[in-house]
Amino acid sequence: MSWLTDIVRPKIRTLLGRKEVPDNLWHQCPACQQMIFQRDLETNLKVCPHCGHHMRASAKERLAWTFDDGQFTQIDTPRVPQDPLRFRDQKRYTDKLKDARDKTKLDDAIVVGHGLLGGRKAVVAAMEFGFLGGSMGAAVGEGIVAAAKLAVLQKAPFIMYTASGGARMMEGAISLMQMPRTTIAAQMVKEAGLPYIVVLSDPTTGGVTASFAMLGDIQIAEPGAMIGFAGARVIEQTVREKLPDGFQRSEYLYDHGIIDMISRRADLRDTLIRVASLLLPPVPVDVPVPPTSSDLAA
């Protein structure tokens, strides 16, 4: 450091009224390493305009992108015990929850909302990967059950966005019990004759994949999403074989008939509207009654 940087440069900036460039003005694509203007990235729904890489999105962003005009009503999910096992590793579980809540401004790793999708009632639940890796604990299970009950009550399709590393180890068997609970929730929607549509985003793994994530009437995935149960390295060590290129990516799963379709994020909302319209009766439209002669005379 010298007098040029310590004294002269600050004075020049003061005289010219120059402002510091915000740190979040540009974003680097993790796939192609190209720099993207933050405003352009938001306009493009967090998809790289250079290579088409679909970046991870927050739960509330997904709900806003799905509902008509981005308007929805978020519901409060049932409360659950904070730390039933009094778990602790390097940090206490309660401290990890507090840090995750401060970071995401959410109570847990799921957001449930209801509103209109293409003029039709819909219930949408989205997982928040930024909250402890989107791990599934009792709160996530309660959120999915509450969303399923609301869909049945409103006679609306249930759309589920998945983004998770699997079960939440800090809750032990309680977390594992959410697998059958969420499976029953999905079945409850189907028994009511309503569509259960799953959108698989990057990543969807572990106990989430082994339960409600793969039970949709229609399975839609975003391009390049990692979808699987165990990690590729664990599988290779188990079967002692080299896995094919692109294994556990949405394109590989589509080619092998595991998912129904791949939809770009820009087309996803229209795809959901089309799928819901195919699986449900048409939305009733109020047809105006033609005026009578007496009405015209009046």
Results as ranks from 00 to 15, higher is better:
272 L>Q: 08
129 F>P: 09
22 P>K: 15
46 K>I: 09
6 D>M: 11
145 V>H: 09
131 F>K: 09
228 G>E: 05
73 T>C: 08
42 E>V: 07
111 V>Y: 07
19 K>V: 05
33 Q>T: 15
12 I>C: 12
149 K>L: 13
296 L>T: 13
282 P>E: 01
171 E>K: 01
40 D>Q: 13
265 R>K: 04
246 G>L: 07
142 E>G: 02
108 D>S: 11
76 D>A: 14
230 A>Q: 02
9 R>L: 13
37 F>L: 10
286 D>E: 14
31 A>C: 10
147 A>F: 02
140 V>Y: 05
147 A>V: 03
231 G>F: 04
255 D>C: 00
253 L>P: 00
298 A>V: 12
1 M>V: 12
84 P>E: 05
232 A>P: 05
63 L>H: 06
194 L>Y: 03
134 G>N: 00
197 I>R: 02
223 P>G: 10
155 K>V: 01
230 A>F: 07
228 G>V: 00
159 I>Q: 05
167 A>V: 06
249 R>L: 00
79 R>F: 14
30 P>A: 14
141 G>Y: 02
63 L>Y: 10
193 G>V: 06
30 P>Y: 03
239 V>H: 01
119 G>R: 08
4 L>C: 08
104 T>V: 09
240 R>K: 14
89 D>A: 14
60 K>Q: 11
143 G>R: 07
51 C>K: 02
27 H>L: 14
179 M>P: 09
240 R>F: 07
159 I>L: 01
291 P>N: 11
33 Q>P: 10
49 P>W: 09
281 P>L: 06
79 R>P: 11
162 T>Q: 04
77 T>S: 04
9 R>E: 13
21 V>R: 15
16 L>S: 13
267 D>S: 12
213 A>N: 02
174 I>A: 14
278 L>N: 15
267 D>K: 12
183 T>K: 03
175 S>Q: 06
199 V>R: 05
236 E>A: 14
67 F>K: 01
148 A>V: 06
98 K>N: 09
82 Q>H: 14
258 I>Q: 00
5 T>Y: 15
6 D>Y: 11
284 P>R: 11
137 G>W: 01
72 F>V: 01
72 F>T: 02
123 V>E: 06
112 V>K: 07
167 A>S: 15
254 Y>N: 08
156 A>M: 10
96 K>I: 06
100 A>S: 12
228 G>P: 03
154 Q>Y: 13
32 C>K: 06
60 K>F: 07
75 I>P: 00
79 R>M: 12
109 A>S: 04
10 P>S: 11
272 L>Y: 10
137 G>F: 01
234 V>Q: 07
44 N>F: 13
269 R>V: 02
186 A>M: 06
66 T>N: 00
73 T>L: 11
280 L>D: 08
52 G>K: 04
158 F>H: 07
288 P>T: 09
85 L>F: 06
235 I>C: 02
111 V>K: 04
266 A>N: 15
116 L>P: 07
177 M>H: 13
222 E>C: 07
98 K>G: 07
47 V>T: 12
208 V>A: 00
214 M>Q: 06
246 G>P: 02
200 L>D: 08
47 V>R: 02
111 V>S: 10
171 E>A: 04
159 I>Y: 03
90 Q>S: 12
124 V>M: 03
156 A>N: 05
3 W>R: 07
57 A>F: 01
195 P>W: 01
168 R>K: 04
31 A>I: 08
74 Q>E: 15
192 A>Q: 04
290 P>G: 06
176 L>G: 11
137 G>Y: 00
